[in-house]
Write a protein that binds this DNA or RNA. Structure first.
Length: 694
RNA sequence: GGGCGAAUAGCUCAGCUGGGAGAGCAUCGGCCUUACAAGCCGAGGGUCACAGGUUCGAUCCCUGUUUCGCCCACCA
């Protein structure tokens, strides 16, 4: 059942006092239910109606006289402050009826047809009856007015038929004691919920739980094991059909035709699927299980109930961890449903973008709190990523296809050039971060870690960096590159395999050597021998310099294929040495013909520049340099640096900061100040030099 | 009405216990450079909804406001 706001009508009806001395006006959206009215309710403190206690109301269109009851549920301000009470066809009225011991009069049957109690309207459909009632009320002068009225109408979630509340006999489970057990299990950590934002919701639901109606009037389900004696109407609930009534001994018993609520049956799933109630091997092995993964929208319906049943029947929680993933919605944020027709069919998406792309997308979206708006553009983006892996593998295979697969096994990083030491170091970090993310159920972080490593580091930097070795004729350099390339690729494939099984399996089999499925490979573990902080530091410097040179090229509109000349001025001894050793790589990655790395030097005439920390990069442009543009660039850099410097100095000058901030933060600020000051000096010198050249 | 959650770049979203704001897509400029134009290189873009408070310091913690979403209850 779902509620939908509907434009309806509010009928105001005059109910005459039984002594004919006046009338009260009541309002209803369903006038046909008046036939089932067994009272009129008013607020106990409402003096307008205090005199009606002994008089009563004459119910229009009938010959019945109904009492006036006094109940706090009635709002004095709504309408006339008088409420017609139909205990059999309204939930609140039912409650009022209980409080005042009112008669319950059902006036329509389960098909929505008015019954004999509604005579003379018996046999009419409820809506036809409504028309007739309104016409009759009008004709007899009982209708005060009709208003347009928007209200929520309960209707069937599938066929949209308006649902009428009515009373019926149903089976209930007193669920509070079970809920308390489940709450205790979560509170003391026997079951953990991820992400933890759901704890609040879980507790809120469980603490306010109401008795659970478990009977359903449908065909498909577990039949309720209850029998009624035909002779004395005695109820029996038994595991097996009883032979005779335990009360009167009659053998004529009828089993309850209602079936159990789906969630009742589903709540048994953790053990009923393992052979319970027999004490099976499977039950011993798999109960309790480690983790349950499901969507948050059934945390209450399913998860909580499995816990209640599991604790009650098995004496132990059914699972240790619950991972709640988001719910996929359409791109407008609407819940997908078959009846609405806004379902994105995974098969169609997979056919268009690839299964791995869809899997990667869903993994990358896993962090979102409650809903995933599945936009196809995102899937498309990740298809590009799958494609990128494929192409990177193709490139690698060009160079390692004929290699001995053992080359990736015993790599001694100490003997390797920077590129390899750096990528192995980064691979280690990627492995560590990915494992941690998976352990913490942060699947999106795992996906993003691998994505960034593969695309931004492995492809964009490492492959470009080692190309010259792979294509060159230095046998040692080539062999080293092949070995590390294979090692990194193997690890990348294994890291990716749980998310993108198809492309990784495919590539795995074309790698050199005899290989069984990647599925049986162990998930990568970090290799401590690959950790190399120094390499990471030097690589960062290297990349910064490459970035600087590329920036100059781009801003000066130098054609990518044109060779340039570069002068790097770096007076730090260590950095100077590092850059000198990397000059070859710097040249390849920036299309530089001649490169000089000096400890001292100034801007050559007509050179464009870039400042990376306090290292100056100059590229002579054969007089083509735009001095104004260069000045503007330096000015912008200066403003930014000065602002940042002022901020840091402000902090360090603040006594309270110095008194309260942790030492490492203070050290960091001091470091920044030194860095900024050095940079500013360079900028000022650069601007002065530029002015001379004008 | 009660509860929960969200508000960060044009869009879709990350940002773990407070310490110099990130990604993808989109945009702008340049490139078919022998893995990949589904690509490469470079660049621009955000008073982290608003107002207070706590703190040396707030996107992050607290209070209030606004807008949106979900759940529960209900609307005679």
């Amino acid at each position: 059942m779902e509620h939908e706001d509907t434009a309806g009508k509010l009928y105001h009806i005059r109910y005459p006092y039984a002594d004919g001395s006046g009338h009260v006006v009541v309002a209803t959206t369903r006038p046909e239910t008046m036939l089932g009215d067994t009272a009129v309710a008013v607020h106990p403190d409402d003096e307008r109606y205090s005199h009606l206690k002994t008089i009563g109301i004459k119910l229009p269109l009938t010959d019945r006289t109904i009492p006036v009851v006094y109940d706090h549920h009635v709002e004095r301000e709504f309408g006339t402050g008088a409420l017609k009470v139909t205990p059999s066809h309204d939930r609140n009225d039912y409650e009022i009826g209980l409080r005042h011991n009112l008669e319950r009069l059902k006036v329509m049957d389960d098909s929505g047809i008015m019954n004999d109690a509604a005579s003379p309207y018996a046999g009419l459909d409820r809506f036809a009856c409504r028309k007739q009632i309104v016409a009759d009320l009008e004709a007899q002068g009982f209708l005060e007015k009709i208003e347009e009225y928007a209200h929520a109408v309960g209707q069937c979630y599938r066929c949209k038929t308006v649902v009428e509340p009515t009373t019926s006999l149903q089976w209930f489970v007193s669920v509070k004691p079970l809920a308390a057990q489940a709450v205790a299990a979560v509170r003391d950590g026997r079951t953990a919920i991820h992400p933890k934002t759901w704890y609040n919701t879980f507790y809120a639901w469980m603490d306010n739980i109401r008795d659970w109606c478990i009977s359903r009037q449908i065909w498909w389900g577990h039949q309720i094991p209850a029998w009624t004696c035909d002779a004395c109407s005695h109820f029996m609930v038994e595991e097996h059909a009883p032979g005779s009534c335990e009360k009167c001994g009659s053998a004529k018993l009828t089993q309850e035709t209602d079936v159990l609520d789906t969630w009742f049956s589903s709540a048994l799933w953790p053990f009923s699927t393992l052979g319970w109630p027999d004490d099976t091997k499977e039950l011993k092995l798999f109960y309790p299980t480690s983790v349950l993964i499901t969507s948050f929208d059934i945390l209450f319906f399913w998860v909580a109930r499995m816990m209640m049943m599991g604790i009650h029947i098995m004496g132990e929680v059914p699972f240790k961890d619950v991972y709640l993933h988001a719910l996929v919605r359409d791109k407008h944020g609407k819940k997908m449903s078959k009846s609405t027709g806004n379902v994105i069919d995974p098969l169609v998406v997979m056919a268009e973008y690839g299964t791995d792309a869809l899997r990667f997308t869903l993994t990358a979206f896993a962090a979102q709190g409650r809903e995933i708006k599945l936009a196809e553009e995102r899937i498309e983006g990740y298809r590009h990523f799958i494609n990128k892996i494929w192409n990177a593998a193709r490139f690698a295979l060009m160079h390692i296809k004929e290699c001995d697969p053992a080359i990736s096994k015993d790599i001694d990083p100490a003997a390797l050039p920077l590129a390899h030491r750096w990528i192995l170091h980064r691979l280690n970090q990627a492995i560590t971060e990915t494992r941690q993310a998976l352990d913490d159920y942060r699947f999106n972080d795992a996906a993003s870690t691998i994505y960034q490593f593969v695309w931004n580091e492995f492809c964009d930097w490492y492959l470009e960096w080692i190309k010259s070795d792979l294509y060159g004729d230095n046998a040692t350099a080539k062999a080293q590159s092949q070995a590390v390339l294979l090692a990194v690729l193997e690890n990348v494939l294994k890291l990716l395999h749980p998310i993108t099984p198809f492309v990784t399996e495919e590539i795995w089999h074309v790698l050199p050597g005899e290989r069984t499925s990647i599925m049986v490979e162990a998930f990568p573990t970090p290799n401590p021998a690959w950790d190399d902080g120094e390499a990471a530091e030097l690589a960062a410097l290297f990349m910064g310099i490459v970035g600087g040179i590329r920036n100059i090229r781009s801003e000066a509109m130098i054609h990518p294929s044109a060779e340039i000349e570069v002068l790097i001025v770096c007076h730090d001894e260590t950095k100077h040495a590092g850059l000198t050793s990397l000059a070859g790589s710097l040249k390849t990655l920036t299309r530089t013909g001649t490169m000089a790395v000096q400890k001292e030097g100034t801007r050559p005439k007509g050179a464009a520049s870039y400042l990376y920390t306090d290292i100056e990069i100059f590229v002579p442009l054969a007089g083509l340099v735009d001095v104004d543009k260069e000045q503007a660039k330096l000015k912008k850099d200066q403003d930014k640096t000065e602002a940042e410097l002022a901020r840091c100095q402000g902090k360090l000058a603040n006594e309270k900061f110095m008194a309260n901030a942790p030492e490492e933060i203070k050290a960091k600020e001091r470091e920044k100040v030194a860095e900024m000051e050095a940079k500013l000096e360079k900028i000022k010198a650069g601007m002065a030099r530029l002015a001379e050249l004008r």
